[in-house]
Structure formats: structure tokens, C-alpha cells
């Protein structure tokens, strides 16, 4: 709309500034504070200490300190958790996409009634709270002796992720014209050949978008990873949670702050590079239902 009246324009700008501040300030504050000592970031005198780093200068000699990061990454072996997270998220994303593209393609091209029922079941599964599923895993996993290993967690996350992946890829494959693969079938390809030679080359935009969300699910998960992994092979998020229990008592809350900032960085980079795909993915889900 062109030519907003001045009053409205001021109001809009003020509101937007306020929101953008609210969205970014907590992160900026925590990143900044993670380079200070605890007496600054959690200052009993004034929060201005956290900005100037009065105590940080007194205790370490510099305005910035890497003590928190050193404590988290070296002393508490956060790097192990980071490697585990890398393994889990990459495996979850890859397996989810391989399994999901096959399934999503079949659902989009089937046209039989049972395909619809599978989608409905997937919708119901997607709504299940993850922690309730976890309470169903624990006893059987203990008995089968597969509790606590990374592959178990990966498979579980893939399964939990399937309903969403199926829905998203299904609606994406619907947008690829049927004629494309059907003409391949007429030319004598089998279904799988048509999928491999005709569909795979054109499916990457949808796969990348879906992959981003699979990645986020694996990365952000707390319920499954905290209950299904033993201490030695924890991923980052449950590791941070376990920091809180042990570290807070020893007065080293800054380790947890540094770990939190470290876990946030990959997400920032992800949004920076894939903003368009994330936005289009969310919208695709909404517009197509």
C-alpha cells in the first residue's frame, strides 16, 4: 500500500523495531555475556557489569575471556557431544530423506484410497507427543539390550520424523507433473527406473527443504536423545541439560552459557544460508495443508 499516513507509519516502525529487538536481543546478550565471567553475566550489583566486564577485567586481565568455552569444550568434553550430534543429525537427515522420498513419491502417485488413510495415520502420528512414545520404548529397549546406543536413537528419530517427511514430500511430488514419469513408463521404464532417471533429477528443491526440517528435528530434539542415550554418547542438547544439574552447584554456570551459545551457532548459519527454503517449506505445508 502506498502512502501510509504518518501516524500509522510511526506506529508500524515502532512496533517492528520493538519486535526485532525482542527477537534478537536475547541471543546478542547471551553471546556477549558468554565471554564474561559469572560475576559479570550474573551480576548482583548491576547488569551494566555484563556490558563493561568489570569483574572479567579484575579476574582475567582482559575484557573478554574464553574460560567458559574452555570449560565446556575441553574440561567437560563438549566436543564429544558435538561429534555425536553431527553423527545423529546427518544420519537422521539422510535416512529420513531416502526412506521419505520413496514413500512420498508412492503416496503422490498412488491414487488408491489406502494412500489417503496412510496419510491420515501419519497426521495422527505426527501429533503424538514424543515423550509419550519414549515411555513406550524404554522397557522393550532395555530387554533387547539396545538402549543407549547412537544407532537406536537415529532409527527412532527417523521413525518419529517420517510422518512429517511423508506429508511434505507427498505434497511436493504432487506439484511435479504426472506426465513426466508416465511418459517414461510408456517408453518402457519400470516404476523404479522412472523414479531414478526422471524424478530424482528434478526433486532437489523439495528434498532440500524437507531435509532442513529433518535436520532441525534431529538437532533440536531433547525428549528422545535425553532418554535414550547413555551419558558417554550424549548429544549436545541433553549434554547441556546435564550441565545444569552438575555445573550450577559448582558455580560454573558459564560453561553451560558457552555450550548454549556453541549449540546456537550452527542454527544461525543454517538460517543464514537457507532462509528462503525454510520460509517456503513452512508456507508449502500451510497452503497445501
Amino acid at each position: 500500500m502506498n502512502g501510509q499516513p504518518l501516524g500509522l507509519k510511526t506506529l508500524t516502525t515502532a512496533f517492528l523495531t520493538l519486535w526485532l529487538l525482542a527477537a534478537v536481543f536475547p541471543f546478542a546478550w547471551t553471546v556477549w555475556g558468554s565471554f564474561k565471567v559469572e560475576a559479570d553475566f550474573f551480576s548482583r550489583q548491576s547488569w551494566w557489569f555484563a556490558i563493561e566486564g568489570v569483574r572479567t577485567v579484575q579476574q582475567t586481565g582482559g575484557t573478554f575471556t574464553l574460560a567458559g568455552y574452555e570449560g565446556a569444550w575441553v574440561q567437560n568434553e563438549f566436543w564429544k557431544a558435538a561429534i555425536n550430534t553431527l553423527i545423529v543429525t546427518l544420519s537422521v537427515t539422510t535416512i529420513s530423506l531416502v526412506v521419505g522420498t520413496l514413500g512420498g513419491y508412492a503416496l503422490a502417485r498412488s491414487g488408491h484410497r489406502y494412500a489417503f488413510w496412510i496419510l491420515i495415520a501419519a497426521l495422527v502420528f505426527r501429533a503424538m507427543p514424543h515423550i509419550t512414545l519414549v515411555s513406550g520404548y524404554l522397557l522393550p529397549f532395555f530387554q533387547l539390550n539396545i538402549w543407549g546406543y547412537l544407532p537406536t536413537t537415529i532409527i527412532v528419530l527417523v521413525a518419529i520424523n517420517q510422518p512429517f517427511t511423508l506429508w511434505m514430500l507427498h505434497s511436493f511430488f504432487l506439484s511435479i507433473p504426472k506426465d513426466l514419469d508416465e511418459s517414461a513408463l510408456v517408453d518402457g521404464c519400470t516404476r523404479f527406473q522412472a523414479f531414478r532417471m526422471v524424478i530424482i533429477p528434478v526433486m532437489w528443491p523439495g528434498v532440500i527443504t524437507t531435509g532442513l526440517f529433518s535436520f532441525l528435528l534431529g538437532y533440536n530434539d531433547f525428549a528422545v536423545t535425553s532418554m535414550l542415550l547413555r551419558q558417554e554418547n550424549q548429544t549436545m542438547i541433553p549434554k547441556i541439560a546435564s550441565f545444569l544439574g552438575s555445573i550450577q552447584n559448582e558455580g560454573n554456570v558459564m560453561f553451560a552459557v558457552a555450550a548454549v551459545v556453541s549449540a546456537t551457532v550452527p542454527l544461525f548459519i543454517l538460517v543464514l544460508f537457507f532462509q528462503r527454503q525454510i520460509v517456503s517449506g513452512l508456507t508449502a505445508g500451510a497452503v497445501k495443508g
Binding site: V99, G100, L102, G103, Y105, A106, L107, I118, A121, A122, F125, M128, L133, G136, Y137, P140, I155, V156, V158, A159, I160, Q162, P163, L166, R191, F195
Partner: peptide, 15 residues
Amino acid sequence: FIFPSILAMLLFITL
């Protein structure tokens, strides 16, 4: 095509 997907959901969501 859909078997792996269904298997995963049956084993780890339905069961």
C-alpha cells in the same frame, strides 16, 4: 516403495 517408511512407523510409533 512405501515399505521402509511404513515399517519404521509401525515399529517405532504404533508398537
